[in-house]
Design a protein around this nucleic acid. Structure first.
Lengths: 113, 113
DNA sequence: CGGGAATATGAACATCGGGGTATATACGCC
DNA sequence: GGCGTATATACCCCGATGTTCATATTCCCG
């Protein structure tokens, strides 16, 4: 409930966010597009709203939800230190592979033995 | 424990990852630096390992853990569509502030209009 | 004015994951 | 071989959270 990370741990909530990334939507639209029961959509939206991921505009009986960037920016910021790490990794791996066998090979993953 | 998002929802696990971002560590080091019970550290490391966030090198009785980039890259990739969203927001905010209090212009890349 | 759509909330229930304790396994050293 | 250190695992408990069902609220419209 606290951290932004916990919020986006829930798959349905990520789906809602991704949907809202393209454009704002009413609750009904969200239910239909994501094939999610109304009550479930409402609850997830509540959680997203209270965590600052979305905000609602009232439009007659509908609530139109739209994205708010701050919490995801926070996640992005946490990721920053790691980015440096993995770009270095990819570079090193590429150099390594080039040295071993100069062919356009694709990287293998965890190969333990 | 399916998704990478669920894995990093846990604060202790994020702490471990952040610690490993600076350099690899043995379990004992992790326990001490994070003031976390040994059994807890081991469990979280197991989860991180099985989810591909870390890998362990055996060194006598110690296991030295180091970061693996892939799962965090996946999170980063999920964030990508949203980034466009909030940079637009920041730009709007900047324009707004510029209007209120015009500051000496700073070099921007894409000069619009 | 009354009915029905759109959305929110509450209660009951099941599940899951983390913390703690106890214990097992592996290794190095004397 | 026996001990101490380092790490992993099994088990239990408990609280948090998601799902569903039932109901409340708000608003449009005929």
């Amino acid at each position: 409930m606290e951290s932004s990370f916990a919020i986006i741990a829930e798959p349905n909530r990520r789906a809602i966010l991704s949907l809202l990334a393209s454009s704002e939507r009413s609750v009904g639209e969200i239910e239909r597009r994501l094939r999610m029961p109304q009550t479930s959509a409402s609850k997830h939206l509540r959680i997203l709203r209270e965590a600052g991921f979305v905000e609602a505009r009232v439009e007659a009986q509908r609530r139109v939800y739209r994205l708010r960037p701050e919490p995801l920016m926070e996640v992005d910021a946490w990721l920053a230190p790691f980015r440096r790490f993995w770009t270095a990794h990819v570079d090193a791996l590429e150099r390594h592979l080039d040295r071993i066998e100069p062919k356009p090979a694709k990287p293998r993953k965890g190969n333990k033995r």
